[in-house]
Every structure is written in C-alpha cells, then in structure tokens.
Design a protein around this nucleic acid. Structure first.
Lengths: 226, 226
DNA sequence: ACAAAAGTGTTCTGGGTACACCCATGA
DNA sequence: TCATGGGTGTACCCAGAACACTTTTGT
C-alpha cells in the first residue's frame, strides 16, 4: 500500500455533452463558464468528481444540477488527459454524452446558468478540448442510433414517423427516403401505433407511435448502415 | 483558480489489455501482481499516470516497460471509477487495449515479470474489475476488426489467407466460409500478393500476402457484418 | 489413392434504394 | 385544385451465404 503514496494525484472532472432535439435540429446545451480560467467563454457543463463518487455518478449529478433532470440517458465517451489541456492546472476529464427531451428541460435553469441550446453544426468555439469532446460524442450518438431507437430518448413519448425521420436526418446529417425509412422502422417491431393523430405537421394527419414499453432498452439489429 | 483547490485529488492509473495471437488462439498477456493488495493474483499490466504525462503516454510507457515494445497499436477503452473498485485505496483507472505480434515480444520480459500469455476464453479470475476491462476490450477489438484490417497488427508482416481467417475466427469466436472470406478480403484492395509461398500449413502451399503499405492505416468499409 | 487446404465459380436470397402511385386535407 | 405529407407497392441491384468443383501435393 505504501507503494501507492509516491504517485501523483490529480483533479478529475466530468464534462457532459448534452444533446437535445428541437425544431428539426440537433442541439447542444452549452453555457458560459462561471469561473477562471476562461471565464465567460462557451463551455460544456462539467464538474469535479467528489470523494466516494464514480464518474458515472458525477456526470449524473452535474446533469441534475444543471438541467434539473435525472434518470436520463448517459454514456461515457472518452477520457481526456493531455497534461496541458487546461492552461492553469492539470485536470483529467471524463467526457459523457447525454440525451434529453428538450420539452422536459427546466427553463429556469437557463436563467440560472445562462445556458443556451445551440445547433450542433453551428457551434461556437468552446474552451479547452471541448469541441473535440463534442465531435467524439456525435460519433458515439450516430453509432448508438444505428442500433437502438434513440427516439424514446430525444423525442416526446409519442411521435410521428416524420418526426423520427427528421431526428435521424439531423443525427446523420443526411436525408432518408420517407417510404423506405418508414418500412424499415416499422419492420423492427419496436414501435406501437397509437389511436391518436397529429395534424399540426401535415394536412392529412399522421398517426402517433411510441416505443413499445418492453423494447425501450432492447438492442436492435443494425438500423442504419453505418 | 482557487476554485480548483477545494476538490479532491485521485490516483489515476492505466491498465493495458494486451492481445496477441498464437497457435490459432487469441491470447492475453497477464501477470501476477507484484505488490499488495492482491499480491500474486492475476492482473492486467498497469501503472500510475505521472506528472506531465497523458494517459495515452502512460499506457505506452507501461507497455514499453512490460513488453519491451513501442510503437504498437493502443486504443483507449473506457475509464473505470467505481469508488470501491480497489479495496485499499481509491484509484481511477483508464483501460487501454493493445495489439502486439507475439513473435516480437521479448521473452526475457516473461521471466522478469512472470507474465503469461493466456487464451482469452480460458482466462482465470483477475483482480478488481479487470475481467470487465477485458470484456469491453474484446468488444472494441471486434468493432475495430470489423472495419480495419487487424492482420497487420496481430500477424507477422506476411501471412496467408488461412492465417488471416483463423485470426478473424478467433476474434469473433465463429467460423467463416473459406471461399467467401478470401473473396471479401481481396475485394477490399488492401492486400498485396507476394511471390513467396507458405508450405507449412498445407500440401499445396498458399501465397503470402501483406497489407499494402499505404493501406495500413486506412479505414475500410465494413468488413464483417457486426 | 486420399485427405486437406488453395483457389474459383455459381446460385439464391434478403435487404437496401429508387421511385411510382394513391390518399387525405388545408389553404 | 394544388401542394404537401401520409402511406403502400414494386422493380432492381448488390452483397452475403451456401456450396459445388477443380487444383496441388504430402503422406
């Protein structure tokens, strides 16, 4: 055990790449950093790991503190540890990505932290290596969306196939053939048609669907060739 | 900056999941832990991150120290941070996986550390969460092998298609149709046929191939449906 | 002669893609 | 009536899987 003491100790942080989906665009929740260094510059939500807290727990805590939400999807992306990644002092950071329904996001938190939902492909420069974290997270999100239905994480609990398709188009930055997309998604057997229709987005009105309760966590076949 | 000081600091380690390939089997290099706690139990190669050293650099250093090799393939897998993952003292660990050619591995290192190449699917229980690290690394390796040619990392510089297929069968724990596998691999355009033949593994003798020099780092199309 | 890998060719199928087409309805 | 999305059907193409078959050579 005395073998341990001679080694250096480090501040370890988590940074959260928080994805939301709104107005046909994939968005990211970022905020102006509240303290030095780089105070005021755009940054991901982050925080230091505390004693007796795992990085998963720390990420969930940061998310709770900054968005008011818990029990949301969170997945580790990668650890960033370049010794000069923060100019003033060395910090090792574990990046996480989160998927949240913007509708559930508490607006008052926006005021509290000055946070802003920003379209992913128009992001301003972020501090340190946060832009790189975003890039890697987007890749992970694409991978995840490729074999599990991210609809339930990013869309309201009921959604139309148009909405689901637009979401996938936003994630992959490409378009999908409406007919083929519909058939593919339905063929997976994870969607349940509801009796309700949505008439706000088309004249005819489209049926709502939801993810079947038992399929929410199911790992599906490859959905999108990727 | 004074904001930083109030937060706890942690020992941060790297653990290396070292894959090799020998006698038709995918193997892992593990060794008996040299110090308490859990001294003598089977463990991955690991070490603490030093000042001014990134986790990537630390992993490369550990690999160099324990195998004598450098410039080998290394990729971050995940960070393990459960507060009780080591019984005596809290250590956060970043897991890496490495691919090495066993032929290049210095045998003297085996004696020095008591290390042993162990078939992946017959692993003994390892300390702490090291078995979980291995599982995740194997998944990452399968992913990597699915769209880049791991032959150049794990096989000698020239190899037959039988050897390459056996390697893929070991990685995916399944069999591939010899004819189809051959056609698929050749169709990628990343292999170069040599004039030499190998006669040790078949009566007829099979031509050696090597990965085209400019294709070693190329990200290829999806090779294996996965 | 036979076994076993090397190497090539053929057939079949399923999924993806492109695209045509009808339906419903608000403006 | 026309534009727009909703929803269904069809034809084609290609990659993968299965498998037949021929070649070579050591035993």
């Amino acid at each position: 055990m005395e073998f341990y003491v001679q080694h250096p100790r480090f501040l370890v942080a988590v940074d959260c790449v928080i994805f939301g989906y709104e107005e046909g665009e994939l968005k990211l929740l970022i905020y102006p950093r509240a303290f030095e260094p780089e105070k005021g510059k755009w940054s991901l939500m982050g925080g230091f790991i505390q004693q007796a807290e795992s990085s998963d727990e720390a990420a969930a805590r940061v998310l709770k503190e900054t968005t008011g939400l818990n029990e949301i999807f969170l997945e580790q992306v990668s650890t960033f540890s370049a010794s000069d990644r923060e100019p003033s002092e060395r910090v090792i950071s574990v990046a996480y990505f989160a998927l949240i329904k913007i509708e559930r996001y508490k607006k008052n938190k926006t005021r509290e932290f000055g946070a802003k939902w920003w379209p992913v492909n128009e992001l301003p420069p972020l501090i340190f290596d946060h832009n790189e974290m975003v890039l890697q997270s987007l890749k992970k999100l694409q991978q995840k969306a490729g074999h599990s239905l991210v609809g339930s994480e990013l869309l309201p609990s009921k959604f139309t196939l148009l909405q689901l398709r637009k979401l996938y188009e936003a994630i992959y930055q490409r378009s999908f053939d409406p007919g083929n997309f519909r058939k593919k998604m339905l063929s997976l057997g994870a969607l349940e048609k509801l009796d309700q229709k949505n008439s706000t987005e088309s004249k005819k009105g489209a049926y709502y669907y939801r993810v079947k309760p038992d399929k929410t966590e199911l790992e599906l076949e490859r959905i999108i060739k990727y």
